[in-house]
Design a binder for these strands. Structure first.
Lengths: 331, 331
DNA sequence: CTGTTAGCGCCTTCAC
DNA sequence: GTGAAGGCGCTAACAG
């Protein structure tokens, strides 16, 4: 049986209140007393019980990072993992710990959304529905939505300039004279997909180019799928001279296809990615891509959430981090 | 103020015990009753308080994944992230949630190791010291060590066949006739470093080759460092004909250096990696490497820990997952 | 199947 | 600077 605060109090001769203070607010306790308490605690292997503490304080100092279960696993996802890491850092800096769970953890047997877990607030990453957000809100659970934009009152959403990024990528291509530009789009959440696709279309429209549907493909965002898809496109008699890939994993798969087809890059085909994931500068030639400030996204989301937890009422807002073109060797 | 179990009990006319059961063990409650309880709960936006629940049950159903703070961030680490993912999956399957924290979360103001957080057990990943393990154990906190081997009684460590893998890689190279084989070793934890280096040395010894210290380099395991280091080696007049890299990130960096130097792979230099990370089949040519069963490592660690949490006493053991050579295009 | 009762271990007033 | 007492919200016996 683990020692409790009472055992320590008995051993050191002080009251449990003093023992409690010695750990929770050391400066409210006389130096000498504190030492005695610690000594007794050490002798008994006593450690404050975090649960009991959370119970009485009404706070856990934990934050939940929740992702849709069906979504490509976060930690393995080259886009989400840096965001997650940034959230982690920010939380640590502010004294919070991070919980990682899927939306499954948020369902009760009666189907209601609820927090079965011990957290003071939630970052809802990727796909997520308004219903869940509202359920959470109704239970006074602070929420911030990440990489998605949901239309709910007083909700803060943190995303990036999806549309602007796509436009940036496409204009870069059209400015270099490309006309036959294909898009290989990953089947992401609607928010991401449509914004990026709109950028593609609008850029084409700007140069008076109509959309050739043979050049528009949607795939599961894996390198393998991309390689396969790109191989087909590149073997068309009038193949595209440039391919806009809606993330870097797809771009890498496309790059493989081009390399295997013996094409020169960028002379024969230009390839542009999106996200500026780690992989983009690991491949050779290195990928031109649109940089998304993943660190900022994570940091902002965490800070916004913590502000809410600590009492602020958020306005309804969509925070978009800016994007930037990174020109490397594939365009 | 959030509704409590009592409010629900009052509203639906049952006792709080029944309300509690309706959520915690629905099958012990009559269908009709359950419905009424849920209805009242919904009306009040009631949700069981996870903290209070954990307090009285003496369990949180949470597991902590703890990493050394100075360690290269887990989620971004191509080796740890699949392990982490596997732990996550296994935990989810068994009804546990995962907490991610650094060793900093485990220190009290008095310097003692302790669990400030709400968890039933801990997976200590990567570098970790015996002292911390013992402190944790003394507090009845189940621990499993991952990717490390520590000499403590009744402690389960999960790692992989580091030495065997290195031997496998090296023999593959020597069997193909290589004699001048370099090693670019990442500065990992001693456990990993020494085992892999021993494999290198022993394989060289097998063919009667002495170790040429110009061909032995230790670096921070980034692609950039590796590229730089490999460039130097490859510009030696009597450059190595093969390079054993102690992980895939290093191998990728080395590959870049070789490609840029205009060398043909594997004819001019063979490159072999370690881990079989995602990246290994994303680069072109694809990397020959030693596959480490990261999924198994994560799964075993989680299962071992959960067994302990649920009452089993572990033997002192080091579980090594087997490795396997994956021959691709760089050898 | 449902109700009663007794804490879980701690923090936080409020006194002294 | 320290002590006494109350209660956080829930579950787990034990009855009925």
């Amino acid at each position: 049986m683990a020692a409790t605060i009472l055992d320590v109090a008995d051993l050191c001769g002080y009251s449990k209140a003093t023992v409690s203070r010695a750990f929770a607010s050391p400066d409210q306790v006389a130096e000498k007393t504190r030492q005695r308490v610690y000594e007794a605690a050490r002798a008994l292997n006593y450690t404050p019980d975090a649960i009991a503490r959370a119970m009485v304080r009404g706070r856990t100092d934990n934050i939940g990072f929740v992702i849709y279960e069906k979504q490509y696993p976060v930690v393995l996802n080259p886009f989400y993992s840096p965001i997650f890491e940034s959230v982690l850092q920010t939380c640590a800096r502010k004294g919070y710990s991070l919980f990682i769970s899927s939306d499954r953890d948020l369902r009760l047997p009666n189907g209601q959304t609820c927090v079965k877990k011990q957290m003071d607030g939630i970052i809802l990453a990727g796909q997520s529905d308004a219903q869940m957000v509202m359920d959470l809100r109704r239970q006074n659970m602070p929420v911030v939505v990440l990489n998605n934009a949901i239309d709910v009152d007083d909700l803060t959403c943190v995303t990036t300039d999806q549309y602007g990024g796509a436009l940036l990528a496409m204009r870069h291509l059209t400015e270099r004279g490309h006309r036959k530009i294909a898009i290989i789009a990953g089947a992401f959440s609607p928010h991401v997909c449509t914004s990026r696709y709109n950028g593609y279309c609008d850029a084409l429209r700007e140069i008076g180019q109509t959309i050739d549907l043979r050049f528009v493909q949607t795939i599961e965002p894996t390198a393998e799928q991309a390689t396969q898809c790109a191989s087909m496109m590149l073997s068309l008699p009038d193949r595209p001279t440039a391919i806009f890939c809606t993330n870097d994993t797809i771009a890498v798969g496309t790059l493989k296809a081009a390399l295997r087809a013996g094409l020169r890059i960028p002379q024969d085909v230009a390839i542009i990615g999106f996200d500026d994931s780690e992989i983009s500068h690991l491949v050779e030639p290195e990928l031109t891509t649109v940089r998304v400030d993943k660190a900022a996204m994570g940091c902002i989301a965490a800070e916004q959430l913590i502000a809410q937890i600590e009492g602020e009422t958020p306005p309804k807002q969509v925070i978009q981090t800016p994007v930037e073109l990174v020109i490397r060797q594939t365009t």
